[in-house]
């Protein structure tokens, strides 16, 4: 339980590590989301072009 209380600084230490985790996951997730969206947009457009030809 020592690790949880961190000598009374538990709230500060854990919130920092928690926030770091959240931000890193968020940045990664946003990057993947945008990649998927752009890829899909181009794919749809290219497929439509191909069908027309």
């Amino acid at each position: 339980m020592d690790a949880l209380s961190m000598g009374g600084y538990g709230a500060y230490v854990w919130s920092c590590y928690g926030l770091t985790f959240v931000i890193v996951v968020f940045l990664n997730w946003r990057g993947r989301l945008r990649q998927k969206r752009i890829y899909r947009e181009i794919e749809v457009r290219l497929k439509a072009l191909e069908d027309r030809e």
């Binding site: 961190m6 000598g7 009374g8 600084y9 500060y12 230490v13 920092c16």
Partner: peptide, 11 residues
């Protein structure tokens, strides 16, 4: 700083 120092590893 005691254990509060551990924040350095993410800050």
């Amino acid at each position: 700083q005691g254990d509060a120092f551990r924040i350095i590893y993410v800050h």
